[in-house]
């Protein structure tokens, strides 16, 4: 019965909410592209083809989106780049989300442990997140895995604070007291009563962060701490294009930039939709 209602709502929502459908469609397309990249890409993303000219304009022969300063096909690089983008956007956020929800709920539930956890978070907060990411990535060394790990650490304080604030707010409500009066254990109160009430806003926040994370990782790649060339990555591509931006070839930056933007917006549309879906007061 319970699941029935959820699934019916799921379908109903998707039809009703056009923005959400667009967002999900974009993400689905990106994922499919990432999986089938070798089949879809017309050229090898990391090598210039023999016939290619450097900085070919879009819609020139064989290169729909043109080529970059090394003569590589931009479309093919975009298709391959979706792999790192979708992975580096989702996985660090999901991992830090899981850690944060536990930390945040425990901190909000128990004043003693909460003080301790939140002080540590405050220390992490003291550093600007990009700087922190740079330091961590520099210590760990470059590479996709290390960048993702850095992103996990950097996001935890933000997400924990979101969960913590929500938890503290929910703790004031009588249903928590009711749950304890009717025999719920502390563990059950935290993860059966509080969790469904604090999760939705974290999910919304997390989906927005996914978009931001794509951009941040692109930034790290740009200063040489992230994904290493010649791997196709949207952020890396965008930063490579900056040299030719003013020379009259803005498309080298424009297309990966647009891709990042569209994916980021798609994630935030998904977030809004998920929030409504998870809210029982919205029909």
């Amino acid at each position: 019965m319970y699941t029935n209602i959820r699934w019916r709502k799921f379908g109903k929502y998707l039809v009703k909410d056009k923005m959400a459908s667009i967002g999900i469609a974009i993400i689905m397309v990106t994922i499919i592209t990432a999986i089938f990249a070798p089949l879809l890409a017309p050229y090898n993303p990391n090598e210039a083809s023999d016939t290619a000219t450097r900085l070919a304009m879009p819609f020139t022969s064989g290169h729909i989106l043109g080529t970059d300063s090394q003569g590589r096909d931009i479309l093919s690089r975009l298709i391959y780049g979706s792999r790192t983008s979708i992975l580096s956007a989702t996985i660090p956020v999901i991992i830090s989300g899981v850690i944060s929800i536990i930390l945040g709920i425990v901190a909000g539930f128990s004043k003693k442990i909460g003080g301790f956890i939140m002080r540590i978070m405050d220390v992490l907060f003291a550093f600007p997140s990009v700087l922190l990411a740079v330091v961590i990535a520099a210590i760990l060394g470059p590479g996709l895995f290390n960048v993702c790990l850095a992103m996990v650490i950097v996001r935890i304080p933000y997400m924990t604070r979101v969960v913590y604030t929500d938890t503290v707010q929910e703790m004031q409500k009588e249903y928590i007291e009711a749950a304890s009066a009717f025999g719920r254990t502390k563990f059950e109160i935290m993860f059966k009563e509080l969790l469904p009430n604090v999760l939705p806003s974290l999910i919304v926040y997390a989906t927005t962060l996914m978009g931001v994370t794509v951009v941040t990782i692109a930034g790290l790649s740009f200063i040489g701490l992230g994904i290493q060339p010649p791997t196709a990555d949207w952020g890396l591509m965008a930063s490579n294009g900056k040299n030719v931006l003013v020379q009259g070839d803005p498309y080298v930056t424009l297309f990966p930039g647009l891709a990042i933007l569209i994916l980021a917006v798609a994630f935030s549309m998904l977030g809004d939709w998920l929030r409504d879906l998870l809210d029982p007061t919205k029909k």
């Binding site: 319970y2 409500k173 009588e174 249903y175 009711a178 749950a179 009563e193 469904p196 029982p280």
Partner: peptide, 8 residues
């Protein structure tokens, strides 16, 4: 508020 809003 005495009932959890997200449970039946």
């Amino acid at each position: 508020s005495a009932f959890n809003p997200r449970k039946t």
